[in-house]
Nucleic acid binder design. Sequence first.
DNA 1: CATGGTCACAAGGCTACCTTGTGACCAGAC
DNA 2: GTCTGGTCACAAGGTAGCCTTGTGACCATG
Lengths: 307, 307
Amino acid sequence: MLGPHVPELRALELLVVVARTGSLSSAAAEVGISQQAASSRMRTMDSLVGAPLLDRTRRGSALTPTGELVVQWASRVLDAADQLDAGITALRQDRRGHLDIAASLTIAEYLLPSWLVAVRTQQQRLGVPATEFMLTATNSEQVAAMVASGEAQVGFVEGPEPPRDLRNRLVGVDELVVVVAPSHPWASRPSRRVSVHTLAATPLVVREAGSGTRTVLERALADRPTTEPALELSSTAAVRSAVAAGAGPAALSAHAVYDDLAAGRLVRIAITGLELPRLLHAVWKGGAHPPAGPARDLVDWAATSQA
Amino acid sequence: MLGPHVPELRALELLVVVARTGSLSSAAAEVGISQQAASSRMRTMDSLVGAPLLDRTRRGSALTPTGELVVQWASRVLDAADQLDAGITALRQDRRGHLDIAASLTIAEYLLPSWLVAVRTQQQRLGVPATEFMLTATNSEQVAAMVASGEAQVGFVEGPEPPRDLRNRLVGVDELVVVVAPSHPWASRPSRRVSVHTLAATPLVVREAGSGTRTVLERALADRPTTEPALELSSTAAVRSAVAAGAGPAALSAHAVYDDLAAGRLVRIAITGLELPRLLHAVWKGGAHPPAGPARDLVDWAATSQA
DNA sequence: CATGGTCACAAGGCTACCTTGTGACCAGAC
DNA sequence: GTCTGGTCACAAGGTAGCCTTGTGACCATG
């Protein structure tokens, strides 16, 4: 799946740092290796790409045109890696100066990492010591319970309306969308649209019974004659893969398939007379605003970045 | 910049393959390592994250809830890595069964990789042998010359209008946008808007004289009294970093700053009475359509994916 | 002309990872 | 019952890649 010519993350990081600093030595210092090691890493990248990435002169190293291309591509990889980093850091339960966050699955998977990165860089810029986030991902009911009990200072839930006993603020919207593989007959229809009736009569790829997305879908089709699932899988990732491989249509969170739609691995099908929006709320206990500090920063960011 | 808990790309790839196949052994076979090596890699990932990613049973391995989160985050990294892979593959000059592409910088950097990935997966799905793409990134004039001379079968150019002597098709639009750091005074204005006059009077971070984006900008401000640049840098990446660090405003391609805007590292400022759109065209020589085969597939994809 | 900055070459060591070999366990077929 | 093919785990050993240290050449700048 991944070719043999793709450098590892640390090498890509070194490349962009070299691009920024203009020097192998200082870049090496920044990522914590020796100048010689950095030079060697860059040289192996040269051979991976098949062309030199750097103009190495006696007073610094500048990018070649090829290098500049690769830097741009690498930056996107590293952006995603930053979000992964934020997520992993939040999962590791470092218990000094931390903020406990509870979030529903969709939010934890697709939105929260970028918010964490944003708050983190904001803190860096202001010179504030970094907060360690701890993340629990579970269903929306559980999230509400954790916030109510004080286990988490702030929570993020999805659903028709936020829990009554907690304060809330709207931070985004999600929607279930129906997707198929590009080779699926529905994708060839000029309108890329089918009726609710057709959808209900078609075997779908679904999550296991009881999962949030499946419940929403079943409720929306409740008054129609429905058919058996084509395939029942236990993770969103598995459903995405199965649909892309042609196993049949599925309904998934718009956020979950954003990349696949953009890359053309999946095709969105509109359903006449069916919309499945879900509101995403931040929730907390107590005052009109979340507790001052990282919790409030996070909610503020989430609420404003959706604009 | 990148934390110590982020696995390398190959490890992430293994994780998502395990998630898809449901088995360590078959995943190991797919990525070309032994089952034991795969098991060990996954175990080091466990310790990086601080929690097990897999439920390892005697008849397969399924994701834990934590594992599912990490898979989603990792998928985004790998999506970007796929585009990097496509780009690098196109740069490596493998000369068997290839398509020569010439593209202007903006397109080569931001759009082309995803198109290449799309065409590649399309070929895989149809069982067609994969084309080796060869990419030359240069300015739009050069691109037109290469296509005219036959050095490249297809080209992608930006500019007010495509070259007369070539056939063309619109594949997208780009725009120069003005961005500042979130800490910049302009970002605090409620309107996030300044006048052309203010912009012209403000020292900007710019590319070196002669670069495409700088030329467009200077031409647009030609009839205004302008000031000296705040900083002159030789790559788009350097400009982005400098602006994010607070060196001043800059005008950059909308595609170049898409991620930074989404992540909040940069803030877009509207300029009253100034718009700098650029049309992106595919160009080729000869008939009304590009030559059948990969060239046509690529252009078709590019033209339709912009919708 | 000294100094501090750049990068390159060479040798050595170490570590991390991978392979091979083996075993335990489980399900389904016969 | 047991055979077969599938899973994963444990252990030992080798190897290769990478990193550090040491050294040197070169070039600006003061």
